[in-house]
Amino acid sequence: MAVTGDIHAGIVDVHAHWLPRELFALPPGGSLAGMNERDGELFLGDLPLSFPAAAMSDVGRLVADTARAGLGVRAISAPPFAFPVHAPAEADDYVASYNERLAEAVASADGALVGLGLVRLDDVDAARREMTRLAAAERVAGVAVPPLVGGRSYGEGVMREVLGVAAELDLAVLVHPTQSPRPEWKDHYLANLIGNPVETTTAVASMLLSGVMETLPDLRICFVHGGGCAPSLLGRWEHGWRTRAEVGRGSSRPPAESFSLLYFDTVTHDPEVLRLLRARASRDRILCGSDYPFDMAQPDPARFPVDNGIDAATLEANGRAFLGLGSRS
């Protein structure tokens, strides 16, 4: 169902993060220490996150920062280290608590915020129960999910089935990487600088080459950070699809056709990369994003795409379409 309730006019930022303080401990089973506040700053264990704790947890601060950024609406979702992927069967209480607090937060924001909730990706029945509750919440538009879980993505199995539930319930899906560590990325913040776009790229390839969008044409799914490396690899995937049987056996149409059905945000940090995304993606599938409040956020999320060829009216219309907000009268 479409989101109900009055929503502000203006550019829609689909990629911003929020977590209430009572859930800073994070879901069970993960290797990361919980979040904590020290002298007003937020830490992940002993790692400084380089922004105030209030920017992550305080709804009033978030709403004020949204207005200061020249945005009409922000869609808020949990930071990726709060995804329930390590011990999902033990995380039901955490997921339910987050989604309840999220519904309360967006309801209190007077139309400035829309929510994207948490969901398990290991059990279709559990996912359906939680997503059905999310679909009934007034200003909750969908779910935020990781691109990979246990070396798998959305081309098969439970993860693909969860996308089917999202499409059935008319929920938007935002795919956000989790900065998975690898030994070769241990220095220079490479787990983020390289790892995040590679995770996203892998998920996009899984979607295109396994035919997900052929079976779920109404699915509204967005890949953040401009789709990672996917726009620059699309030609390579097209060539492989036409020349190698194992590339093309999962999909009946070339990757570029399905690519045109995916949504992408504008967090590219580079006008040339954004231009490439514009050349590859559909005009009505490019969304404003910020990655607020992280240090890797796009510093001026509304102005960056506008200065690089995407007008504010298009950004607003696209964001509203992705989130199911309906056209502004």
Rank of each mutant, 00 (worst) to 15 (best):
20 P>K: 15
108 S>R: 02
4 T>A: 14
187 D>Q: 08
106 V>A: 06
142 G>N: 09
130 E>G: 04
73 V>M: 10
158 V>L: 05
88 P>F: 08
97 S>C: 09
289 G>T: 07
302 A>Y: 04
26 L>H: 05
14 V>F: 12
52 P>C: 15
229 C>I: 12
275 R>L: 01
33 A>V: 15
32 L>I: 14
194 I>T: 12
200 T>W: 08
278 R>F: 01
71 L>K: 09
215 T>A: 10
148 L>M: 11
4 T>C: 08
145 V>W: 08
313 A>R: 14
177 P>Q: 07
28 P>N: 02
125 D>W: 03
130 E>M: 02
93 D>A: 09
99 N>K: 04
218 D>L: 06
198 V>C: 14
237 W>F: 06
231 P>Y: 03
129 R>G: 15
150 G>W: 09
238 E>S: 06
54 A>L: 09
106 V>N: 01
151 G>R: 09
43 F>D: 15
188 H>M: 15
144 A>Y: 07
17 H>G: 12
8 H>Y: 12
6 D>T: 11
266 T>N: 10
293 P>D: 02
179 Q>S: 14
296 M>I: 12
89 A>E: 07
309 G>F: 05
286 I>G: 02
58 D>S: 15
199 E>M: 00
61 R>H: 13
161 E>R: 10
216 L>V: 15
329 S>P: 14
91 A>Y: 00
189 Y>S: 11
150 G>H: 05
266 T>F: 02
308 N>L: 08
277 L>V: 02
243 T>V: 04
327 S>G: 12
136 A>L: 07
317 A>Y: 04
208 L>N: 11
96 A>Y: 04
13 D>R: 13
188 H>L: 14
160 R>D: 06
150 G>M: 08
117 G>W: 10
138 E>C: 01
328 R>C: 13
211 G>C: 12
207 M>A: 10
59 V>I: 04
298 Q>L: 13
116 L>S: 13
292 Y>I: 08
189 Y>M: 13
295 D>K: 01
